[in-house]
Write a protein that binds this DNA or RNA. Structure first.
Length: 481
RNA sequence: CGGGGUGUGGCGCAGUCUGGUAGCGCGCAGCGUUUGGGACGCUGAAGUCAGAGGUUCAAGUCCUCUCACCCCGACCA
């Protein structure tokens, strides 16, 4: 059978689309730019949701739900906000067959309607901080779309908090950025750089935007989550005020932060290889697949029974396991099929293993025989599998980190910048003292954008690679999705 | 919105130049043999050839119009 996945080296973009199709993660819908998330893809998203919900609740947030439709006038209350989102709004003007008095915007994000509600809910400093998250779909009218990375409608969570002081709000913004980074590293096995967005790239209406930036396998950057410090911009626009301990009326300070189904794309493009998907065990819908093997009909029942016992033992140990007892496929087909779908561990069980009271463990992150361990005693199945899953989780992170670091280069001048970008790609680290106009020009000329100013850097002072001015600010440029 | 391309069983395509029975591979269904790295045989189901109009004895094929989708750019979680 012909290989149905284009090699990464041949065409990364085709590879990405092939993997999504073959692994049955998602599919284009009849509506241009909108996709259908299929069960396997949605299960990855559910695991992301679960891991984030745990973290949000541990940091004191509660989930709620706000409406899909937002009065147009709400968006207009914050000048920068409406200006930023206007080009990508979907607007409802007719309802029930009648022209609406006021058009309703299909939410591109919910700062405004949540701000409106917060102004009603917050009266006193005792009501603060108000920490709420919502899981929702949002719509942004996009020119060009790509499954998971950019679709007209996407799923995400948006956290919205209100605080008594600027310091506390800013601190919360940073705390949630840390939560995202922790999630990315420890659940998705994706190393990220925490940074602050340039004036040009920040969220419309924010005082400051922070992001975690990840590097995909082709060296491109992907903004994987954002956290915004909104200052009192939205508090002013929506009258979010409270009485402090001295009975003084004061403005709140708000934050918002989000992570979307784009993260599924990040997982695909960070870990995938030419065989297909490679899922980090913690997010994998199926962590272990059991493939029974028999030669003759009289072996069949015995092998299946033995394999079922192993399956049960793994399930009892809390492992997400699935048996593949399909009789119309050969073991070889199944091996390739599940590897393509990114299942981290495969248990192979045949008559020979049964005879030795053993199983074979095969790990997805190492190809072929090299990734197999033969003769694992069956009574150790659960323990050894669990160890293996943890090892794979760590190994995926290590591989991604190594690649990211190997493709991050400091450059000192613009000529080198352009040369390195064309020959190597990846992240380009520079000292930066340029303006927004400089930034726009660089993007125009090189198609690389300023991803962030990293919060942590060891470069110290140096000369701006563009202007030559002395600065201690460091920036990362890259081509980005 | 500019540039390029494609529409033919579920998927990938050939057939269009030169009009004459709608085909191939994969997949799907049934039966049998297989099963430790992408098995094989036989049988079978499945197509208003993107749509509309026209030319013709006859249109997937020629002419006119329309629509849809994909790729490359400008905008973006």
């Amino acid at each position: 059978m012909a290989e149905s996945i284009t090699p990464q080296s041949e065409d990364f973009s085709r590879w990405y689309l092939d993997v999504i199709r073959e692994a049955e993660l998602a599919e284009n819908s009849p509506v241009r730019g909108s996709m259908v998330i299929r069960p396997y893809g949605y299960e990855v998203w559910e695991n992301i949701q679960e891991a984030l919900n745990l973290r949000f609740k541990a940091t004191g947030h509660r989930n709620a739900y706000f409406p899909l439709f937002i009065p147009m006038s709400f968006l207009q209350r914050e000048a920068e906000h409406v200006e930023g989102f206007a080009p990508e709004l979907a607007v409802v003007t007719i309802g029930g067959g009648k022209e609406l008095e006021e058009p309703l915007v299909v939410r591109p994000t919910s700062e405004t309607i949540i701000g409106y509600m917060y102004s009603r809910w917050i009266r006193s400093y005792r009501d603060l901080p108000l920490l709420i998250n919502q899981w929702a779909n949002v719509v942004r009218w996009e020119m060009r779309t790509r499954p998971f990375l950019r679709t007209m409608e996407f799923l995400w969570q948006e956290g919205h908090t209100a605080h008594a002081t600027a310091e506390e709000a800013l601190e919360h913004t940073r705390r949630m950025l840390d939560v995202y980074a922790d999630f990315a590293v420890n659940e998705a096995a994706i190393p990220v750089i925490k940074g602050i967005k340039s004036e040009r790239e920040k969220f419309a209406g924010a005082v400051a935007s922070y992001s975690i930036e990840a590097m995909m396998a082709n060296g491109w950057a992907l903004q994987s989550a954002t956290s915004h410090y909104l200052g009192d911009n939205f508090a002013k626009a929506f009258d979010i005020k409270f009485l402090d301990e001295e009975n003084q009326v004061r403005n709140c300070y708000t934050t918002s932060w989000g992570l979307s189904t784009r993260m599924v794309g990040a997982v695909i493009m960070t870990h995938g290889d030419d065989q297909g998907l490679r899922l980090p065990p913690r997010l994998a819908p199926i962590q272990v697949v059991v493939v029974p093997i028999w030669r003759s009909e009289d072996q069949r029942a015995g092998v299946l029974e033995y394999a079922s016992r192993v399956e049960a033992a793994l399930r009892d140990a809390g492992i997400r396991v699935q048996m593949d007892a399909r009789e119309d496929q050969t073991p070889g087909f199944k091996f390739n099929d599940w590897e393509m779908r990114g299942v981290p561990v495969r248990v192979e069980i045949g008559p020979r293993d049964m005879q030795q009271n053993a199983i074979v463990l095969a790990r997805r992150d190492r190809p072929g025989k090299e990734g197999k361990t033969f003769g694992v005693p069956v009574e150790q199945a659960a323990v050894r599998t669990r160890e293996l899953l943890e090892d794979i989780q760590a190994s995926l992170l290590a591989q991604a980190t190594e690649r990211r670091d190997a493709n991050t280069r400091y450059v000192a001048d613009y000529e080198t910048f352009k040369a390195v970008l064309d020959s190597e790609g990846g992240f380009l680290k520079v000292h930066w003292a340029g303006t927004s106009e400089d930034e726009a020009r660089i993007q125009e000329e090189t198609r690389a954008s300023l991803r962030c100013l990293p919060l942590e850097s060891t470069e110290g002072q140096g000369r701006c690679f563009l202007t030559g001015a002395l600065t201690d600010r460091v920036a990362i440029f890259a081509r980005a999705y």
